[in-house]
């Protein structure tokens, strides 16, 4: 799932303070799970903004609503007549949602209320961790299911750097060294031979945007 965290409140306030009619528009899928941008968070953010507007003596009408997804038009199209009544949409969806809504909304700006971070796992409720970087060329079969692109601070492909420190990363003792984990996992799988092979320089063109693809089968059906 996509993770994100709400921007600092002052930054959000500075984005909205000069508008007259603002919709805080939530997305009830990924960013709702990380408590940053679902309908509930949109509602709280709208009331915080109303309180700030009152404090500052600024007249802004601030409402809130949400749909299930901002990343597919079919989810937001049914409510667009209402959305277009505002002069600013403050989206609490991920950046994908902000982009797509912006493309579809017409003359109204769409601003981001959250910083979109990564697509991550939820190892424990309320904790989010990046395990895959979406680099476009998966090598998890060679690394014991542990991604060095996402989980090594330097995205190294041939083993740990000299900064590896008793299982931790040189960047922070809170980050586990991905290559020590890969080594241990391959050892457990009796496949340390995989780590001995030199991995050639990566084709980063697969990881760089703008990226898009079409599902071939669906294309055939359409024809």
């Amino acid at each position: 799932m996509i993770t994100g965290e709400q921007k600092p409140f002052d930054e959000i306030w500075n984005m909205v303070k000069d508008f007259k009619k603002v919709l805080v528009f939530g997305c009830n899928t990924c960013v709702a799970i990380c408590h940053a941008g679902g309908g509930k968070e949109a509602e709280i953010l709208a009331s915080l903004l109303r309180m700030r507007a009152a404090q500052e003596g600024v007249a802004i009408e601030i409402d809130h609503s949400a749909v299930e997804r901002h990343c597919e038009p079919e989810f937001f199209q049914p409510v667009m007549d209402n959305v277009r009544k505002y002069d600013l949409v403050l989206s609490t969806a991920c950046g994908v949602g902000v982009n797509l809504l912006s493309e579809n909304i017409g003359e109204i700006p769409v601003f981001p209320a959250i910083n979109t971070e990564f697509f991550g796992a939820v190892p424990r409720s309320g904790e989010f961790t990046e395990l895959c970087a979406g680099c476009g060329n998966c090598i998890l079969h060679l690394t014991g299911g542990i991604c060095p692109i996402a989980r090594c601070s330097k995205s190294l492909l041939n083993g740990p750097c000299g900064g590896t420190n008793s299982g931790s990363c040189e960047v922070s003792p809170d980050i586990k060294c991905a290559w020590v984990q890969i080594y241990d996992r391959l050892k457990q799988l009796n496949r340390l031979d995989l780590m001995g092979e030199i991995v050639e320089a990566k084709d980063w063109s697969k990881a760089q945007g703008p990226r898009n693809f079409k599902v071939k089968v669906l294309e055939e059906i359409k024809k």
């Binding site: 601070s153 330097k154 190294l156 750097c161 960047v171």
Partner: peptide, 24 residues
């Protein structure tokens, strides 16, 4: 060398490259 992470230095907000690494 692969090189110390930017986190160790005086431009911590720099984008690290690591397009290739020491072995490569």
């Amino acid at each position: 060398l692969t090189g110390d992470h930017v986190n160790a230095g005086d431009h911590k907000q720099a984008k690290s490259v690591y397009d290739v690494e020491s072995v490569q």
